[in-house]
Design a protein around this nucleic acid. Structure first.
Lengths: 219, 219
DNA sequence: ACGATATGAATGAATG
DNA sequence: CATTCATTCATATCGT
């Protein structure tokens, strides 16, 4: 995950490469380092695991300034990141029996030496990106609550240090992006407040529609 | 196909490379000949293609006595071995003396005109053979699903690498296809993939569509 | 020494 | 959420 990435990406406008064939137009999204940094920050420091449609919208909007990106990219990223983290565990730990395991609040020692020896956040706790970071909560009054939101303070021992940061820079998840003229039941369910990983009941609704950022749950 | 180098790794690059500190092990795993032998045995003689987590644990545990190895190594090994075997075979179809077209990108491409040098999402619907069955499990070539053979199956007897690939074209025309057309070529936006009804015992609610960053799940 | 090839590792994208 | 597939990157190894 780390030692790689040296793609000729970086977008940054046409890149005027001229008439070089260089059809890098791989249909696949290649995240920039900045994008990855932010995504990991959200994942580890803010506990974002399975962002809702709104969150995805916001996140992708924010990441867009660092390169081309779509909502689905964000969606898949979180999905993959989470899945692989779990898979990694599955290969190294016995899934059989036992494990009443209730939210290991601090697994620092449990770091599976297998798999990725280092991995986790290369994100530096020091806000690399200024909080007045444009594009993100530029004017939105949301986030005022400060409570709710996604804390997942439990964290898994990943970032663990700067937790307070989540409260001042949060904003994802605070719904009500514009006006209340939308969806009943916007944000909610799932990940709010608790670590979703071990939340007993996943899956939840089978019918839901995300339309342009709004959510409509039925049944 | 695989001259299989005899690299003596028991002593792990006995050459005085040593430029890196003790972390020499941090380099990628180099399977010993014994490990490879066992892995291939599992692959070809036991039909193991995509071992489950438990299997991976067992396998890696067994191989550990022949050299350092981790679960992920086993995982990747099967992943890669399977993928490469398939890939290699993909350009070998029809035997004959055809020329290995370089980077065919796709065979189908039923677009009447030459492809556009640009745009066109061309979401790889490409040769993604329908593969109704994830590798193993000798399912019937037709789409009638059902039938899942019994659990794990021991092996299918094919002890040689060249084989299988029998069910690669079972088009999805279950039930009377309304139109003669099959596999609609790419769409304009998004990559809304749809499989024609195709009743499945699996309530497929997870059909996602990402349109302009938003997500739409539909039944 | 290189260039080619084989293959370990990583990850985006899907599917079930 | 688990699994799988396709691609791509990185590097060990072999051939000339």
């Amino acid at each position: 995950m780390e030692p790689q990435q040296q793609h000729v990406n970086e977008d940054s406008s046409g890149s005027g490469k001229g008439s070089f064939l260089c059809r890098q137009s791989s249909t696949r999204w290649t995240p920039t380092t900045d994008q990855i940094r932010i995504l990991k920050d959200l994942y580890y420091n803010n506990g974002v695991r399975s962002p809702t449609a709104e969150q995805i919208q916001k996140i992708s909007a924010r990441l867009r300034q660092y390169g081309k990106i779509e909502g689905k990219n964000v969606f898949y990223w979180f999905q993959n990141h989470k899945a692989r983290e779990r898979q990694k565990k599955r290969f190294t730990t016995t899934t059989t029996t036992d494990v009443p395991m209730q939210r290991p609040t601090t697994v620092s020692n449990n770091a599976p030496s297998c798999w990725k020896p280092d991995d986790h956040n290369s994100i530096h706790n020091n806000n690399k990106y200024p909080n007045l970071n444009p594009g993100y909560s530029p004017a939105s009054p949301n986030c005022s609550t400060g409570v709710i939101t996604s804390g997942q303070m439990g964290n898994y021992g990943y970032g663990s240090m700067t937790m307070e940061k989540s409260f001042r820079n949060c904003s994802i998840s605070c719904g009500s992006s514009t006006n209340a003229s939308e969806v009943p039941l916007s944000h909610n369910f799932g990940w709010v407040g608790f670590d979703p990983s071990y939340a007993s009941s996943y899956t939840v609704f089978e019918k839901k529609k995300f339309i342009d950022g709004s959510i409509i749950l039925e049944e």
